[in-house]
């Protein structure tokens, strides 16, 4: 870019527009950064407030200031959060459900994505469209009939029941990402494998799986975050205290501990942390998944 601009900059009389680019003052750039930083702070302010207040005594909540320097930080809030909110148990329950859901949806997306993009069968287009309809259907509309269904099958109040709807609702988006990715892979690799006598499952799990790792990573990150955060179904299908998922830690503060604000804010921080960490670790995969879903949709 500069090679084309510099020569003309030496004779500004003829091309004033180009010279302006070269002699640009630093101020617009600084103003831009200042503005972006301010907006970023406003966007993050509720979260900063959350972490700050999670370290305060409940009595300090009613002071006049927005942010209070925790002096000393009330780490006891976190200890209380763990015990009153039953964080370790609920955390484990969430992890169990989420990991199984994420793994199952990745495998299903790979299998179905392969069959839809590579294999030749008559109803391929029909079924692909059928599954994609799932992206339009409001998931909360299935809440009530699923409740009745699980009730009839005596599957309510079972942690593993949750895995079924959780996996089903992420199938459309997972497959969408997977088919989009598979279409970019040349077929020559599989052809040589088939020549060497590999079966279809050998091709998928030994050859296609390693190639689709970026797409699988994207699917896993997206599904991890949505499953970890899911709340309404867990709230509807589970009743026993021992099998609840992590969002319910905060609900434990509804009754007798409802005035323990510090511990409540600590629980919220604990619930929010895993997804933020996963997001920060896999920002690119997440970004790709969201934009891929949008660009092709």
């Amino acid at each position: 870019m500069f090679s084309t601009i510099q020569p003309s900059a030496q004779k500004p009389q003829t091309k004033p527009a180009s010279s302006r680019i070269v002699r640009r003052s630093p101020w617009p750039r600084l103003a831009l950064f200042a503005f972006m930083i301010v907006v970023a702070l406003i966007q993050l302010f509720p979260l900063i407030w959350l972490v700050d207040y999670s370290l305060l005594k409940s009595g300090d909540f009613f002071g006049k200031n927005f942010l209070v320097w925790p002096d000393p930080p009330q780490w006891a809030n976190y200890k209380n959060a763990f015990t009153y909110g039953r964080v370790p148990l609920f955390f484990f329950n969430s992890l169990l459900v989420t990991v199984i859901t994420v793994a199952a949806s990745a495998v299903l997306a790979l299998m179905m994505g392969y069959a839809f993009t590579r294999m030749k069968w008559k109803l391929s287009g029909f079924f692909l469209g059928f599954v994609m309809l799932g992206m339009i259907i409001p998931i909360h509309a299935t809440l009530l009939p699923n409740f009745i269904l699980f009730h009839k099958l005596d599957m309510l109040n079972n942690l593993f029941t949750l895995i079924l709807p959780y996996t089903a609702i992420v199938i459309p988006i997972s497959m969408f990402i997977m088919t989009g990715f598979l279409e970019t892979i040349p077929r020559a690799i599989e052809e040589s494998a088939v020549m060497d006598g590999a079966g279809i499952f050998g091709v998928i799990f030994k050859i296609i799986f390693p190639i689709t790792k970026p797409a699988i990573a994207t699917i896993c990150v997206l599904n991890f975050i949505s499953t970890w955060n899911e709340f309404i179904m867990a709230n509807t299908f589970l009743t026993s205290e021992d099998i609840k998922t992590i969002p319910f830690s905060i609900m434990k503060f509804a009754g007798e501990y409802s005035s323990n604000y510090g511990a409540q804010f600590a629980v919220m921080t604990i619930i929010a942390l895993p997804t933020i960490l996963i997001y920060l670790l896999f920002t690119e995969q997440m970004t790709k998944g969201i934009t891929a879903g949008a660009v092709k949709g």
Partner: peptide
Amino acid sequence: FRTIFFIPAVISIVVTAKLW
């Protein structure tokens, strides 16, 4: 900046709803 602006979207709605 892009990462910061997206952070609220990855947090559980239970947390953001209670927070707000």
